[in-house]
Design a protein around this nucleic acid. Structure first.
Lengths: 234, 234
DNA sequence: CAGGAAAAGTGCGTGCGCGCAAGTTTGCGC
DNA sequence: GCGCAAACTTGCGCGCACGCACTTTTCCTG
């Protein structure tokens, strides 16, 4: 089983004017976090992912091993966070960027697809690394849960702060759908295990592209979004 | 060796669909699992939850510590599973039990509420234990993800095996919604941390009953269910 | 600007998750 | 029955997550 652990990262208010006081303290903290991220990813790429101990990461980042896991609960989380770090905020920002006239469902879908399709040079290399191992893959999938809080924020805003808990549920559903899409995407081969009691026809799409998978995973949720925004704006 | 067990003497065949052959091997496995579950819960109730080591649980169940975590990945998981063990299957069964005519959304909602409301004598006592600690609470919340596979199965069936992946997304969304409901339910006090960027009025319902929370968390998903079954049966 | 409180970093010890390589049991075909 | 292959268990060992107590840094306030 996968143990999901809640790592709380500070999400800055994206639409606010500017960060009032940067705070020297917070600066160093983020610097350390970034140093750990980069060190973890770099070492994982250089040697195998399994040939990296926390001690190595901590040393490369210039902190003690104990400090390391004040930031990350697991080795995998550190490596993965290097590639999923800001996706959360970027998705939320992308949703907020859409004009207020468009369907919420479309805004969210496009924002998600956009952020997962835009593979930066380094990200693509990292994804190759992640795909190789089970541990890293699970960590990567668990990381998708991180989009829930910022998504909740923007959706709540679009819904005029009316159905606050509705926004929460919708955001969580989106996170779940994205997770499913990614799950299916990075296991084209093997794994007949998932048959379970799904019944007869395993008629699943062989292996669509990631954007296609994301869209078709989010599509079933569209009616829920429509109903939600219809409810707030009759 | 030659046990006098005829395959037909099994009384507690709970599975709705297929029960191929019970298999003596699988029997002992489930027996061990159950022994570990019960031992974990009992010890956790007797002493504090933090005063129980895996070694104790394993000893109480009559296996080695190493065997213990061939079954459970964490101490908390073992304890929690004693109370969430069959809920998954029970929810799926409850959905399947509803007449085929009713709205899928209603069937699912009622099934979920029913299974979480029906507090067995022992369950209620266990929940008190779980509420006390953060670790157990998280494990309990994580366990809600377990309802996804069986829910996927029944929903797929109701949808005439058409939108297989739609069923998957809906099931995952339900799991997420249930999780949210439980989350809010077991933290009526404290935790001002969740303020985040939710904006102005924190106008949330003070602390509704669990059934109410479940219903209102599942409500936003109803349109998605309606659309799904409308799509398969025009 | 001084002093003290809050927060971040660090050393240390304990229990745990899990891979590995035996040993033991279960199941099945001859 | 016989024996083989697969599945399950177990001892061993390594690294890691994390609580606790303590030092160092940062921030606030009189």
């Amino acid at each position: 089983m996968r143990a999901s652990l809640r790592a709380r990262s500070i999400v800055w208010n994206a639409d606010a004017v500017t960060t009032p006081p940067p705070g020297l303290r917070e600066r160093k903290k983020q610097a350390t976090r970034e140093a750990l991220r980069e060190a973890a990813l770099r070492l994982a790429v250089e040697r195998g992912p399994d040939q990296v101990r926390v001690e190595d990461i901590a040393e490369a980042a210039g902190v003690s091993p104990r400090t390391y896991n004040n930031y990350f609960a697991s080795r995998e989380q550190a490596i993965v966070s290097a590639v999923t770090a800001d996706r959360e905020a970027r998705i939320a920002a992308a949703v907020a960027a859409r004009p207020a006239g468009v369907r919420l469902a479309d805004a969210v879908t496009e924002a998600v697809v956009e952020q997962y399709t835009d593979t930066g040079e380094r990200e693509h290399k990292a994804l190759l690394l992640i795909t190789t191992g089970t541990a890293l893959r699970d960590a990567f999938l668990d990381a998708t849960a991180g989009i829930e809080p910022p998504l909740t924020a923007v959706i709540t805003e679009r819904l005029d702060h009316a159905g606050a808990h509705t926004a929460r549920v919708l955001a969580a559903s989106v996170a779940a759908a994205v997770r499913i899409a990614l799950e299916g995407w990075l296991r084209p081969a093997g794994h007949t295990e998932s048959a379970k009691s799904s019944g007869a026809g395993g008629l699943v799409v062989p292996s669509g592209s990631l954007p296609d998978r994301l869209r078709s995973a989010l599509a079933p949720l569209a009616p829920a979004f429509d109903a939600a925004e219809r409810h707030t704006r009759p």
